[in-house]
Design a protein around this nucleic acid. Sequence first.
RNA 1: GCCGGAGUAGCUCAGCUGGUUAGAGCAUGCGUCUCAUAAGCGCAGGGUCGGCGGUUCGAGUCCGCCCUCCGGCACCA
Length: 665
Amino acid sequence: MKYFLTTAIDFVNSRPHLGTAYEKVTADIIARYRRLAGFETHFLMGNDEHSQNVFRKAAEQGKDPLAYCDEMEQVFRDVWKRLDISFDDFIRTTDRTRHFPAVQAMAQACLDNGDIYEGAYEGWYCVGCEAFKPEKDLVDGNCPIHNTKPEWIREKNWFFKLSKYQQPLLEHYRQHPGFIEPEIRRNEILRLVESGLEDISMSRAGQSWGIPVPFDPTSVVYVWFDALINYAAAVGYGWNDEQFKTWWPANLHVVGKDITRFHCVIWPAMLMSARVQLPQQVFGHGWVYFKGERMSKTMGNIVDPLDAANRFGPDPLRLYLAKEIPYGGDGDFTWERFEEKYNADLANNLGNLMNRVASMTERYQQGRVRGTGGGALAGIAAESVKAYRAAMDVHALHEGAAAAFRLVSAANNFIAETQPWALAKDAAQADRLNGVLADTAEAVRIAATLLAPIMPSSSAEILRRLGDDRPLAERRLDVDTAWRSTGERQILNAGALWPRIEADKGAVNVTEHNQDAGATGATGATGATGATGAAPTASSPGAPVTQASAEVAPQQPAFITIDDFAKIELRTAKVLEAERMPKSQKLLKLKVDAGEAEPRTILAGIAESYEPEVLVGKSIVIVANLAPRKMMGLESNGMVLAASPDGGKAIVLNSEPSVPGTRVR
RNA sequence: GCCGGAGUAGCUCAGCUGGUUAGAGCAUGCGUCUCAUAAGCGCAGGGUCGGCGGUUCGAGUCCGCCCUCCGGCACCA
């Protein structure tokens, strides 16, 4: 039996962070679980490189885009290695031997099957702006910026007939209830598709950074169409049919909840069109927040949660992510909680248990146990294994972890009940003593085996100490979690696996610790999008991006000239009135005195940061010559300047004291 | 505003199609063993199950309204 799973491929315009890591860690746990369960497993990850963001980012650093992507691949691989992610394959969308042919083959197949047609992106095109202008932005039919009449032009564009697949998709969801998980995501997608689908553009004209459309060399494949195909490309689609047949269809796509729609709607439609089997399941995981908030790049010197892996090894972090966050929902990371869980689960329970078993075995019977005692632990172990498997089979990682730890607790209990130290005082109880120690050791062995997908290196170490140092890869769930009542083994007493974290020297206080300063590549300052791969516009709400690391990459800012700047007319203005826009969450309607004959009306998207009253009377800075823009039915004349951190409150620039209308430069 | 999701012990969460005194883990307090990382084990405290109203013999569990929080959409140029 084979199991092929994938994670989203990541944009490389910023370094990996907790949000991206969460996805890889959980997918890795699933992959390792499947291997343990005896599946021949293929675990694919990769990077998404044909994005304009990536292109720009490289340009900012004065690098060739491909060279930049090469560097970033190393950055990503390093992080994944540090987190013990056991991917079997890593694909990049700039891969010319695998990805290019696959994308071109699929585009061609969709075309051949009548689902791609030449259309045009039609509209008013302003030569000055080099951009299409929505009708509503035109003033008297002219471009508001250049005050010239834009041309009505058609840009050639290839469209994919997504609309055609509305019914087939709904039918597929009906017949495969497990296609989208968790359930919440399934319902969202159902409603989305029921409400109707529009054809979507799958090409871009006039760009060089991308894969050429096979039937139109003047265009490249639009990045989302390109990206989704990586899953099939990696295993041979379009370049190795035999291999493709071996692995396709994928059993599972693990993706963030923001891009489930791409994977549950567009991707299956593409595959239907290309006459390729659909993947069996898409799992949309939630976000991990940091202290209940999204992290923003402006937050600066915070300890990155990934730092936990540097300081305690990957396993405590992996356990936290798996056990403390119900898979499918959102979760939170705090150092306080990390420390609490580390101490409770690892230091006090599992680690200490390993120690007491090893210590007693060493002291009472020269480190050796023989057979087992036939105590109650065997039954509890069997129950734990059963619960664990049931949970892990449906990706309930948190429940799987909990089941394993129930066995750990039971073993600690067992020791308290049987009191081996008392048995040791009575020579007549020698057999009984051996049985108790052997039972406990056996329970720990099984627990460690169950935990192996979650904490691979720690589990391997525990198993080694229990006298069983076969590689994890050779272990199988059915054999290796069965209770063994015969055999002799040597147990190693080798000290604390997880020393307790004491409050005074705890993780919480180490705020200026730098993470892996040796990493090259991106600066943490400007990456635009987060974790999540395939969606061209996908942002990652829960994806903390802050890097505590020392940045080493040279920054080559793109300069503008003083003339460019002079085009922007910044002026001070005084707020005369401020009120909420009805029915709007973000907009405030301001009347400001900009030193002109009439006050101006400006709509500003700061309603979430300011009560309107507090703005009245303030002197602010506005962009005075910005094209008028209609929003929510009202025209806005200008723009209020404000510092707007990602995910934080906007701070309107203060220009007090000054005369309204004063030029700012 | 629209569409979803959620509000259960200090914290994180279980509670299936309504049915005896609402559960777990962690945290806290007390007790206790001593093999062990001042760890383990036992006991205890603590909840008007967001609010109001309704259906029912009986509701955390169903219905209606309301409040709060979180997502997505529109709107942030």
